[in-house]
Design a protein around this nucleic acid. Structure first.
Length: 214
DNA sequence: CGCGTTTGACCAGCGC
DNA sequence: GCGCTGGTCAAACGCG
């Protein structure tokens, strides 16, 4: 699904958890029409002492600004894709107000170029190609498809897919889309993943598999 | 010297 | 209309 092509994987920092969320938003154009741009939020757990606000995801980013926002004392960093000057993708990175060890990266738009060479090898559960442990949530608010890749407490994986928006699923969709549910889900996933030895072991194994043989 | 980062200034959108 | 806030620009600065 989308997680593979946008594939923004987190990589070589001290990452314990990755959570992704897709949201399509309408971007008003000058001619009065609305264009859908893809906004994806990725929460990444890093070392609290790491103040760089750099979330490596396989792409090259150029920082063009930093701002302290009202709702969060931590500065928000603004990045543009530096790999392709014409690439419209922007990234905002801000440390979570609740948990300083978590940074939230917000991706706006989609890359119009392939991932830089070697970057696709970066291990991540958000990069489905190399991820043996899916942990991403994809919520397509504009379409019928919901895919939840949830890592359960027991280390197992529960996948719920809705090809069509049936009545019950619509209800579920509304519930899932609610901020309360999302917040609780994020918190639960964070606890489950970071506290799950199997997950960390599997992630480490996946990283090792992806490393070139020297 | 070139490139990337930092940071203050500026601008646009929105609410009152 | 004004003030606040988020987002962007661009000059200054640092590093390799």
């Amino acid at each position: 699904m989308e997680t593979s092509d946008s594939g923004d994987a987190n990589s070589d920092k001290k990452i314990n958890m990755v959570e992704a969320e897709h949201v399509d938003v309408k971007s008003p154009l000058s001619n009065g029409t609305c264009r859908r741009i893809k906004v994806k939020r990725v929460c990444t757990r890093i070392d609290p002492s790491d103040t760089s606000l750099v979330v490596k995801d396989g792409y090259q980013w150029r920082k063009y600004g930093q701002k302290v926002t009202r709702d969060n004392p931590s500065p928000r960093a603004y990045f543009r894709c530096a790999f392709a000057p014409s690439c419209p993708v922007k990234k905002k990175v801000q440390r979570s107000a609740e948990d300083s060890s978590v940074v939230e990266a917000t991706y706006e738009g989609e890359h119009n170029h392939p991932r830089p060479t070697g970057a696709s090898e970066l291990p991540s559960c958000a990069a489905q190609g190399g991820g043996s442990v899916p942990c991403s949530i994809s919520i397509n608010s504009s379409g019928p498809t919901i895919t939840l890749d949830l890592t359960k407490n027991g280390g197992g994986v529960q996948v719920v897919e809705a090809g069509e928006a049936q009545p019950d699923l619509k209800k579920v969709c509304r519930e899932v889309a609610s901020p309360e549910f999302r917040a609780a889900l994020v918190e639960q996933m964070a606890r489950a993943l970071t506290g799950d030895r199997k997950f960390t072991d599997a992630l480490a194994a996946a990283i090792l598999r992806k490393l070139p043989d020297y």
